[in-house]
Computed example of a mutant assay.
Amino acid sequence: MRVAIIAALALATTAATAQQGPMTAPGSKNPALVTGGSYTADAGHSIVTWTVDHMGFTPYSGMFGDVTGTLTLDPKNPSAAKVDVTIPVAKVTTASGGLTSHLLRAGKDGGKADFFGAAPADAKFVSTSVVATGQTAKVTGNLTLNGVTKPVTLDAAFYGAGKAPAMMGGKENVGFTATGTIRRSEFGIAYGIPIVSDAVKLDIVVAFQK
């Protein structure tokens, strides 16, 4: 009897799935799905990953999550786009608890911290220029990190767009990736150079919703 019930449930599930058709992701790489307007960063799905060279032996990565901010976008004029995002440095994470603690450790005897310190201010990137070519763009802006503001250029690319399912809010989404490189010494973070590289590679994923 139990086997018969399980078999009946399996058949019913299969029939229901067949009627609904195959499941597909709601997002697509089709830029025609992007609509204009003001978007808000989806903090839960936006990540800034950083990578440094560790002693010439291996690359080492960590990340910042909970990125917040806004995007103003006109798909008919993508070069007019404006981005303003905030990165909570205090939420930095790595695969090593000891290293994460060191990144956020106060300076010894009240001195300057090796990296970010115990209560780091949020980092901020505000675009000043977007030069779009097809589905990619050079995004130049001012990055404020560790109390220092410097111009940075990122290579950005459209990743996907679409409308989320109703059970997940039903909002319109658009996502981008971006890469770039900064020199941490320019932002007053010179500890360990050159054993740990001055150059820091950035790999960025930001999702926006409206």
Rank of each mutant, 00 (worst) to 15 (best):
P26K: 13
P26E: 14
P26R: 11
G27M: 12
G27H: 09
G27L: 15
G27W: 03
G27Y: 15
S28P: 07
K29Q: 00
K29I: 03
K29R: 13
N30L: 11
P31S: 02
P31Q: 11
A32Q: 15
L33A: 14
L33Q: 14
V34I: 07
T35S: 05
T35L: 13
T35A: 12
G36C: 11
G36Y: 04
G37C: 04
G37E: 08
G37Y: 12
G37V: 08
S38K: 01
S38H: 15
S38I: 14
S38C: 07
Y39T: 04
Y39N: 06
Y39E: 05
T40R: 01
A43N: 04
G44I: 06
G44D: 00
H45N: 02
S46L: 07
S46H: 06
I47Q: 02
I47T: 06
I47P: 02
I47A: 01
I47Y: 01
V48T: 12
V48G: 08
V48C: 03
V48W: 08
V48A: 13
T49Q: 06
T49G: 05
T49W: 11
T49S: 00
W50Y: 13
W50R: 00
T51R: 02
T51A: 07
T51E: 12
T51Q: 07
T51H: 09
V52L: 05
H54T: 10
H54M: 00
M55W: 05
M55A: 06
G56K: 01
F57I: 14
F57H: 14
F57T: 11
T58N: 12
T58R: 06
T58V: 10
P59T: 07
P59Y: 05
Y60Q: 07
S61E: 03
S61D: 12
G62E: 11
F64G: 01
F64N: 15
G65E: 08
D66W: 13
D66H: 03
D66A: 13
D66N: 04
V67K: 05
V67G: 10
V67N: 15
T68M: 12
T68D: 09
T68H: 09
T68C: 00
G69Y: 13
G69R: 11
T70V: 11
T70P: 11
T70F: 06
T70S: 13
L71Y: 09
L71T: 11
L71M: 05
L71Q: 07
T72D: 14
D74T: 00
D74M: 08
P75F: 12
P75A: 03
P75W: 05
P75N: 13
K76P: 07
K76M: 09
K76G: 06
N77M: 07
P78N: 03
P78K: 00
P78D: 02
P78C: 10
S79I: 12
S79T: 12
S79W: 14
A80T: 15
A80D: 15
A81I: 02
A81R: 00
K82I: 01
K82Q: 05
K82E: 02
K82H: 01
V83H: 03
V83N: 08
V83A: 09
V83G: 10
D84L: 11
V85C: 01
T86N: 06
T86C: 01
I87C: 05
I87R: 04
I87M: 05
P88G: 04
P88S: 13
P88F: 14
V89C: 00
V89A: 07
V89H: 03
A90L: 14
K91C: 00
K91W: 00
V92G: 04
T93D: 11
